[in-house]
Design a binder for these strands. Structure first.
Length: 492
RNA sequence: CGGGGUGUAGCGUAGCCCGGUAUCGCGUCUGCUUUGGGAGCAGAAGGUCGUAGGUUCAAAUCCUGCCACCCCGACCA
């Protein structure tokens, strides 16, 4: 394993790229901007999926699946949405290839096989889904519709980065239809809470819940709620969004229902999504110069056992003990890997599992077997302790909880230390350049000022926090009156 | 897409300016010795030099197009 160590402090983005590759999470593919998610990386994504899926179902949602392609006429139906995505759409124009008469063995697009209507590869599925919902909704009795789909989408980004922004990515998108505005708003906020709980409890990444400014709103939404996380380099990452779509899609696709009074009304909508970008959040929020650091709740392997031995007799002894440990821990639902490879030495294995972020490691050798002890090493803070073998089943689950909590606490402390209140433009620029992180500043509420600030500083308004306290002040740029602070940051 | 850089064995690289088919390290394979923090010695295998053209007796090296990646911008629902 040739792991070229790059420090976060030296080159954060190179560190990130190397980590993703060396920890076996993903690699670039032969397709521009698209990645191959490798088994270890996909295993983490599967853990995320399983948990989110459970939470969606607990809040009454069902999974379904809609087509990858959207006919152009449907795609353009909701004008703002279409406009917002138009610049980054992959378009299917033909349905057949044929042999190239001029270059044997090569293929060309068959000009005879032009589609009468182009198909858009979905960048998001509102259009195809609302076109479908039209056929499903007639009466208030048909509502609400609470559907989620796990899918891939394509957004032709100019500049891509593994997990953070790829041309094709995996995500889930919830699309719900409601009889009333209040119910839809409740749904929007409920799903934001689900995302928040997931981010904080499972990813161990604290997030700010907030609402986007009109500039940053999802194209076609009346309101976009989001959770914003802070990465170790001081840049913010949008980790999930939940949109209140109002009646925009219902009107665009003419989706009406008959209410109890017999009157026709447009349906209210929401949509919400998180993507494989969360993998990027997970990596950037916790990992260190030794590699990945995974929170126990999402680690595909929670504990690895590395045997240490010299002779065949020792090997036999140690392996027997290791198998015993594995079995007893597996029985209490801990995911254990016994690294019984005889092709690598312990030191190599220690380093490799650290690189892969396994939260806990047991090192066991003849000495431990003789003393009935076990050496336990934590990945998050690199501490080691020796415990009595009999304590195993009580100590390990506690330690896993500790690690999960410690990781969250560490990220939370970092995040809190990096929310800085500023009251002048000079301060704003200085904090942004020297410290980074979130900047809590007054803003006069206009798009013009928001854009001007972005232009001058590269910082955007990440969100208006939902729990914001009202406070009179003056806009950090224009000096105009403001009633609350908003969070600015440079973002991924 | 604009500016800058890079592309040579699985990975990291030397060679490029000044043309003559390639250096070193890691890894891989074989054997022996090793094993409580990335093992040692000996031997071996592995290359259309990103790709397509061009110049030349001869191209990793010079020229052009294309592709990919990195850094800085633009873009980012």
């Amino acid at each position: 394993m040739a792991f070229e160590k790059i420090k976060r402090s030296e080159n954060y983005s190179e560190w990130y790229n190397n980590l993703v590759k060396n920890a076996d999470l993903a690699e670039h593919s032969a397709v521009k901007g698209c990645m191959v998610i490798k088994p270890y990386g996909y295993a983490i994504w599967e853990k995320m999926q399983q948990q989110l899926d459970k939470m969606f179902k607990e809040t009454g949602h069902s999974n379904a699946y809609f087509p990858l392609f959207v006919p152009k006429s449907l795609f353009e139906a909701e004008e703002k949405n279409a406009e917002g995505f138009a610049k980054e759409c992959a378009v299917v124009t033909h349905y057949r290839l044929k042999s190239d008469p001029n270059h044997p063995g090569k293929l060309i697009v068959d000009p005879e096989a032009k589609l009468t209507e182009e198909l858009i590869v979905r960048p998001t599925s509102e259009a195809i889904i609302w076109n479908t919902y039209k056929g499903w909704i007639e009466s208030y009795r048909d509502l609400p519709i609470l559907i989620n789909q796990w899918a891939n989408v394509v957004r032709w980004e100019m500049r891509t980065r593994l997990f953070l922004r790829t041309a094709e990515f995996l995500w889930q998108e919830g699309h719900t239809a409601h009889a009333t505005k209040n119910e839809a708003i409740f749904e929007t906020k409920q799903m934001l809470d689900v995302y928040t709980e997931f981010a904080e409890t499972f990813l161990a990444v604290p997030v700010v819940k907030g609402v986007k400014t009109p500039n940053e709103r999802f194209a076609g939404a009346d309101d976009t709620y989001c959770i914003e996380g802070l990465m170790q380099d001081g840049k913010a990452l949008q980790m999930g969004t939940s949109h209140f779509l109002g009646q925009n899609f219902a009107k665009a696709f003419d989706v009406k229902y008959t209410n109890k009074e017999g009157k026709q009304e447009y349906v209210w909508a929401t949509s919400w999504g998180v993507s494989t970008r969360l993998m990027g959040a997970l990596i950037m929020a916790h990992s260190d110069d030794e590699g990945l650091v995974l929170p126990p709740k999402l680690a595909p392997i929670q504990l690895v056992i590395v045997p240490i031995f010299r002779t065949d007799e020792e090997k036999e002894l140690v392996f027997a003990e290791a198998e015993k440990i594995k079995k007893s821990l597996t029985q209490i639902n801990i995911s254990v890997k016994f690294d019984n490879r005889d092709t690598h030495k312990p030191g190599f294995k220690f380093a490799e599992w650290e690189l892969k972020g396994v939260p806990l490691r047991i090192g066991i050798g003849p000495r431990d077997v003789a003393n009935q002890t076990i050496e336990l090493a934590r990945r998050d803070n690199k501490t080691k302790q020796v415990i009595n073998a009999s304590e195993l089943l009580t100590v390990i689950p506690e330690l896993l909880k500790d690690i999960q909590n410690a990781m969250y606490q560490k990220a939370l402390d970092f995040r809190n230390e990096n929310i800085t209140e500023v009251n002048s433009w000079d301060e704003f620029v200085s904090v942004l350049e020297n410290k980074g992180g979130f900047i809590a500043a007054h803003w006069d509420g206009t798009s013009e000022t928001e854009e001007k600030i972005k232009e001058l500083s590269k910082a955007t308004i990440r969100c208006i926090p939902l729990d914001n306290k009202l406070e009179n002040g003056q806009c950090v740029l224009t000096g105009n009156p403001s009633s609350q602070r908003v969070l600015f940051a440079k973002a991924y």
